[in-house]
């Protein structure tokens, strides 16, 4: 599913026009992005939690010059599925070739 399909479905379900559904989806995403920007954790019951995790500085290399450098520590957004969602996933058939892969 893409963002556009999500907006289509929101519009099809509710009293909203397509334009209004677009604004609603935009507002939801913007407010979540703002929370992440403030280092705030986002807790959605029945869905999951977005939080920031620290990425430690790593030794890296400038791929062009081969010069060693140390990357700066930074935060990255992390999503952890909630209990209810995990329970549903646990019931799902993992499929025939169960490797660490995209479904």
């Amino acid at each position: 599913m893409t963002r556009a399909e999500l907006i289509d479905e929101m519009a099809a379900l509710g009293p909203l026009s397509h334009k209004q559904a677009d604004v609603v989806v935009e507002t939801i995403l913007d407010s979540m992005k703002a929370a992440i920007g403030q280092g705030d954790r986002i807790e959605i019951r029945g869905f999951g939690v977005f939080s920031l995790r620290l990425r430690r500085p790593r030794r890296a290399r400038n791929p062009r010059t081969g010069e060693p450098l140390v990357s700066a520590a930074r935060h990255a957004a992390h999503f952890k599925p909630g209990k209810e969602l995990k329970a549903v996933l646990a019931q799902m058939d993992p499929g025939p070739d169960a490797e660490d892969s995209e479904a």
Binding site: M1, T2, R3, L6, E9, M10, L13, G14, V24, V25, I28, L29, M32, K33, I44, G46, F47, A77, F79, L85, V88, L89, M92, P94, G95, A98, E99, D100, S101, E102, A103
Partner: peptide
């Protein structure tokens, strides 16, 4: 409704790609 829609797709094993926000992937 918004989160319900995301959830439904993910439960089907579908990838949800939201431009400007991020992508939810179902992996095994």
């Amino acid at each position: 409704t918004f989160f319900q829609l995301l959830r439904e797709r993910l439960i089907k094993g579908e990838k949800v790609q939201i431009t400007g926000f991020g992508t939810f992937l179902v992996k095994t």
